[in-house]
Write a protein that binds this DNA or RNA. Structure first.
Lengths: 338, 338
DNA sequence: TATACTTATGTAAGCGCTTACAGTAAACGC
DNA sequence: GCGTTTACTGTAAGCGCTTACATAAGTATA
């Protein structure tokens, strides 16, 4: 055990010949202190190597200075840029970052306290918390911001997401208009994944706009996941479903699709165009380079933190922030290299 | 502001008709409580929706139940599996996880308190903290575990890393013995990156074992980074340096190297073998599939947490844990698909 | 000069827990 | 039957801060 007897604010006060209140004031700039006094206090802090005790501060001030990030899991190419955005923004705003996955069996319930007491606010990523829990949090007035998720009915929790629908629409439009594809497969994300649903809407809109009949046989589940997508492709090929393009739902799935197709000897994009969504870091280096929709994932993380911080401060926040996406044309759709 | 008047332990005690001490005892199983009493207390907790206040607990018990993770940055394919390992293990051990990057200018100094007071122990990843700071931490007796880094001289901080040297040696051996490569380039990681130095040692050993003279012109900096590696390849090609294989130091750099080579019309692995290190998630899907050394990154994260927790508990820990790596043969070295 | 601020500082009451310590009653040993 | 444990519970003293409130001295206002 490391029972380190660290100096307390009282030690600093004594050393500087002032009261603890004054030390606290120079520490937090929370009241007037004569410059000479402040200097003396700062010097004492320095020489004693004093570091304020976070918990004591929290207890007394009722602020934790910590933000919680709730995720279903740590995985997916998605995760990294988002976390980077969150971490940067949190740090800039002077908050610590507590991370928690909710799929952690066992720990999940026991560690509920992440909310409410350990943090000043919560960032909740897609599907980390069920509607009941979200409702409870909302009712309690605890600051929460949702990422890539719409709150349940009647629950006014601010959300940050990206333009899924229009992004999907424009990439499918591209497939139809430029590459004359007509039988376009859509690979859905995991069951109930909200991004996937919006993307599917965009997909349908694009078809409709070009008078292509929606064929339910062309919508399958790819799980936003390399492996699952590859298996699904093999299954499709086995079933003899005909298609001339695949909108894979996300870039991870695109990797699996391209693998599956290549394995079956089908040329991409010669015979089948393949396009994704997100523009993840590896997408430009795939063979062929992947045409996709760029999603500002890191910015989502930043924006969510900004919203949460404003929410914590009691300032007004956008009920819903939808960040723009952009079509990124590369070669997997059939476009030629520049 | 959300001034939520949450129930305190006193409320629970009153409601259950016991003292706060008894409530605390059933909460922490820290003393004998009659089963009937305990049941009553648990019922009160339930009906009042009582959640213990973490900071108050910390202040009183002098334990934060939180582990800190210090990183230079959130990036690199490396990061994700490691974080997953850390998060899982921390959660399993009943600890929260506080994340901090140290390259965050400005915030860095102000938020020093991450150590010592906010956490029970610190996980420090390569180059997040300088030797002075590490020494200070060590002297103070604060529990720290290093990841992929050797502590400064005289500082006995336990470390967890992987078999860099033998992994590198075996993959270079493979290049020499199986594919008869003789002029093998080594791309170093970032300046002062310890993993890179060990890998270089392994590289040299393999050369020596096969009586190949070490040529300093064949060691260049690739930065463990896609872009930097690609640029370096272009530079090398421009300089006309001759080589028949590249050991890229890590898989990320391999991507850049393959790109650079392909761009110059050089066949991989026909003309030049390319091999990496780490076996990151994308490595098997590169074209050609990358031969590399598998590093148990997630396990490093787990192991580090386990060490740290034991350190916190005052139990004995391994001064240095070196996890095994394994050669993964795919096609980029010249091997044929199975 | 009296009045009212303003500025700088101190005093002390908590914040919500944990945990020695003490107390009581029942069980035990001989 | 009496001293000892043992099992359970309560009392209360902090843990290290923040922050109303009080105080004192200087400054401006009338």
């Amino acid at each position: 055990m490391s029972i380190l007897l660290r100096p307390t604010i009282a030690d600093v006060a004594r050393h500087a010949g002032v009261s603890t209140a004054t030390v606290s004031r120079v520490l937090n700039a929370t009241g007037p202190v004569e410059e000479a006094t402040a200097r003396r206090v700062r010097a004492s802090i320095e020489t004693l190597h004093y570091i304020p005790h976070a918990a004591a501060r929290t207890l007394a001030s009722r602020r934790t200075n910590t933000l919680g990030l709730l995720l279903p899991e740590i995985g997916g190419a998605f995760f990294q840029p988002m976390l980077r955005g969150v971490e940067t923004a949190a740090s800039e705003a002077g908050y610590d970052l507590l991370i928690h996955t909710t799929r952690n069996p066992g720990a999940a319930i026991a560690r509920r306290p992440l909310a409410e007491h350990n943090t000043d606010g919560l960032l909740v990523f897609t599907d980390s918390l069920d509607a009941r829990e979200l409702t409870r949090l909302f009712r309690s007035g605890f600051p929460v911001v949702l990422l890539h998720q719409t709150p349940p009915r009647g629950v006014q929790i601010p959300a940050v997401t990206v333009e899924n629908q229009s992004g999907a629409r424009s990439i499918v439009n591209h497939l139809i208009e430029v590459h004359h594809r007509r039988r376009i497969l859509y690979l859905q994300g995991p069951e109930g994944h909200e991004d996937s649903e919006w993307r599917e809407k965009g997909y349908r809109e694009a078809l409709k706009a070009h008078a292509i009949l929606f064929d339910p046989a062309l919508v399958r589940r790819g799980g936003f996941n390399r492996e699952e997508a590859r298996l699904e492709m093999e299954q499709l090929l086995l079933e003899g479903v005909e298609f001339d393009a695949v909108f894979t739902g996300d870039d991870d799935a695109a990797v699996g699709v391209i693998q599956g197709l290549r394995h079956a000897g089908i040329m991409v994009p010669g015979a089948v165009s393949v396009v994704g969504f997100d523009d993840q870091v590896f997408s430009s280096t795939l063979v062929p380079p992947l045409t996709t929709v760029r999603a500002p994932t890191e910015e989502v993380g930043r924006a969510a933190v900004r919203q949460l911080v404003r929410r914590i401060r009691g300032e007004a926040v956008e009920p819903r922030l939808v960040l723009p996406t952009a079509l990124v044309l590369r070669e997997s759709c059939g476009c030629k290299p520049a």
